[in-house]
C-alpha cells in the first residue's frame, strides 16, 4: 500500500536526510530546526518512508519555473 502511494505521480520524491546532511542544510541557511517548514508525522508519505519526528525530509519536486526544485521539511508531531 505504502509503495503504491509513493509511486503516484502527484507524490514528489521524499528522502530522509542523514545527520550530516541535516546539519549541512541548517548551516547553509543559518537556521535552527524550528525555522524549517514542517510536515506532520502522520502525513501519509512520512509514514510510508518511515521517518521519525525530528528528521529532515528533502523533497524534490517538479517546478514550472525551474523544472526541479528542492524543499526541506522537518517532521513534527501535531
Amino acid at each position: 500500500m505504502d509503495e503504491e502511494r509513493l509511486k503516484h505521480r502527484f507524490v514528489p520524491k521524499h528522502e530522509i536526510l542523514s545527520e550530516e546532511e541535516k546539519k549541512a542544510v541548517l548551516e547553509r541557511y543559518n537556521i535552527s530546526l524550528r525555522q524549517l517548514p514542517k510536515i506532520l508525522a502522520k502525513d501519509v508519505v512520512i509514514k510510508a518512508i518511515n521517518a521519525k519526528v525530528g528528521d529532515v525530509i528533502k523533497i524534490t519536486r517538479k517546478s514550472p519555473t525551474a523544472k526541479q526544485s528542492v524543499y526541506y521539511r522537518v517532521v513534527v508531531d501535531d
Binding site: 541557511y29 537556521i31 525555522q35 524549517l36 517548514p37 517546478s63 519555473t65 526544485s69 524543499y71 526541506y72
Partner: peptide
Amino acid sequence: YDYTVRDANKAIIQFNYGDD
C-alpha cells in the same frame, strides 16, 4: 539576501524565491 523567502521570525517559507 540568500534568495530564501522568510517571515518575520526568519523561518523559511521557500528555499529559493520562485524556485528559480
